[in-house]
């Protein structure tokens, strides 16, 4: 027994010891009960992509990617996701400011409402949008009657569906950044004669810019992947409302190889955009 008592002063033996017999402090060992699930988790996340790469029709890749139908869907996806992100920024940043910086009756309730699209299935969101903005919807009938505007089944509807689903990500992210920002800088600006709008644009916004950027990326990625609300509210018309995720789904029915190509393109675009933006912030901060 006494011979096995670890001697703390000789943790590293001078004489070489066969591998595996080196005594290590117990705290240094990573418990297998955590390692095994962790490795399984990584495999689970990575394997599907590997499978996609293996099964991809590499010889015909060039021709398939430059197919006008693919390019149209890609262009529609990128442009609507970007417009949706811009709209979300214009509406979401002021909303986040209101939630983070002011006290008004029902503020907590509004905050809860804002997060609802995060938790409901997107299809349900699409149904709700159709009921309100559809041609016979609560608001939609007046848009039709007064302005001759019909939203459903147009690219605008794609954007609306994406904003509905993706904006909460931006609001939550920016609100968090605003709450974490040092408000004394805003006080300093006020003592220099800045009114609240000036404080917001010239001090608060620059301070929370990284948070806004992170929120915008989350929002853009979510909009790019939007499926349920889009297909319900905007439909699935090639060239008008058929975004990449919809095109992938349709291709899967008739030509699985085409689906793989579309998926790879979508994957590549998302990775490139995220990597570029991430790089920028890591360097900036």
């Amino acid at each position: 027994m006494t011979a096995q008592t670890p001697d703390r002063s000789r943790r590293r033996p001078r004489t070489p010891v066969p591998r595996g017999r080196v005594r290590r402090p117990r705290a240094g060992r990573v418990p297998w009960i955590l390692v095994v699930p962790a490795v399984a988790g990584v495999l689970f996340l990575v394997l599907p992509f590997a499978g996609m790469l293996v099964r991809a029709p590499w010889p015909t890749m060039g021709a398939r990617v430059t197919d006008p139908a693919v390019l149209a869907a890609l262009w529609l996806s990128l442009s609507t996701a970007t417009v949706a992100t811009v709209v979300s920024l214009l509406l979401g940043v002021p909303l986040a400011w209101l939630l983070a910086r002011t006290e008004f009756p029902g503020r907590r309730f509004v905050r809860a409402l804002v997060t609802v699209p995060l938790v409901i299935p997107p299809v349900v969101g699409g149904v709700a949008l159709l009921l309100v903005l559809g041609r016979n919807g609560l608001v939609g009938q007046y848009l039709d009657a007064w302005f001759g505007l019909t939203l459903p089944f147009t690219p605008a509807a794609v954007v609306i569906a994406q904003v509905f689903v993706a904006m909460p990500f931006l609001v939550i992210s920016v609100e968090g950044a605003l709450r974490g920002a040092d408000r004394r800088y805003e006080e300093a600006a006020a003592t220099l004669g800045a009114d609240r709008v000036t404080v917001f644009t010239r001090v608060t916004l620059p301070m929370v810019l990284p948070g806004i950027g992170a929120g915008a990326v989350l929002c853009w990625a979510r909009a790019l992947g939007e499926f349920g609300a889009t297909i319900t509210f905007a439909g699935n018309f090639p060239g008008t409302t058929q975004t990449m995720p919809l095109a992938v789904y349709m291709a899967m029915q008739r030509d699985p190889e085409a689906a793989i190509v579309l998926s790879l393109v979508l994957l590549l675009v998302s990775l490139v955009v995220l990597a570029t933006l991430r790089e920028r912030w890591v360097n900036a901060s």
């Binding site: 004394r184 800088y185 006080e187 300093a188 006020a190 003592t191 220099l192 004669g193 009114d195 001090v203």
Partner: peptide
């Protein structure tokens, strides 16, 4: 209101705008 007072203030950690 703060922004209309004839004051100038130097804060404890100076709070210079980093950007």
């Amino acid at each position: 209101a703060v922004e209309h007072r004839p004051i100038g203030m130097v804060f404890q950690d100076y709070l210079l705008f980093e950007h």
